[in-house]
Design a protein around this nucleic acid. Structure first.
Lengths: 119, 119
DNA sequence: TTATCATATGAGCAGATGTTCATATGTTAA
DNA sequence: TTAACATATGAACATCTGCTCATATGATAA
């Protein structure tokens, strides 16, 4: 029998009614999973730095790498992650590819994060 | 000589002036790093689920584990991460330890995340 | 005290993640 | 077309992360 813990707990003390009530109010598994995936994207300092640069200006990969003192390859890999998550979009201009913020949730989310830290 | 990429780029095309301007506007390295660390905490589905439970009610470790069908140990480890990041606080009540949300930035941050996803 | 319940924690392991390196793709100019 | 620049990408590797298992700590009741 799997998940013995749950069984054992119920015998003793777990408030089965409370647990059931809370379970019903939780969002879909998928939604919570996707949310975690989104925050995972914010959870890397290279990507955060990229976003801060994009707060200031649209910019090409090469300049971005220079801003952060990192290799073009490393930046490019991370830009892809940001793009798949729709936090960033890109357009081609001649030989360069210019990246920019996809929408304003990014600013809000990061803003709230900063507020939390300032305490 | 290290970081050849930057050097090479400058010879050719990088907009040194633009790069310098952006660099000046960026927050402190530490702040960006801390921000990434904060979001890293949100970037795991177990922790996200814990937070959603805490949106509904204060709850003990045992009930929390039952809600998520996970072991007490796994939950306890993650609660520690959440506590160190000040997203969650705890109080003892008899044999149990009751966890609750530390403040309301958590709701706001997660709310913005959800908005971003709904698109 | 001792027994039991509730939670916390350390070690170990498997899987995920970010960077580097080499190279491929795509664009422009000659 | 070819050469040079700009970006993207795959593989490899080292590090990080989250879970499990065993066990320690803490609290209560008998």
């Amino acid at each position: 029998m799997a998940l013995n813990d749950v069984e054992i707990c119920e015998i003793h003390e777990v408030h089965a009614d409370k647990v059931k009530m809370v379970k019903n109010k939780l969002p879909e598994e998928d939604e919570m999973y996707d949310l975690a995936e989104l925050f995972k994207v914010f959870g890397d300092s290279t990507r955060i730095k990229i976003l801060f640069v994009l707060f200031e200006t649209d910019i090409c990969v090469c300049d971005l790498a220079a801003c952060l003192n990192m290799t073009q390859s490393a930046i490019s890999h991370q830009l892809k992650v940001l793009k798949v998550s729709k936090l960033v979009k890109s357009r081609r201009e001649g030989k360069s590819v210019i990246y920019s913020l996809a929408d304003d949730h990014v600013r809000t989310i990061i803003g709230q994060g900063r507020e939390h830290i300032e305490e």
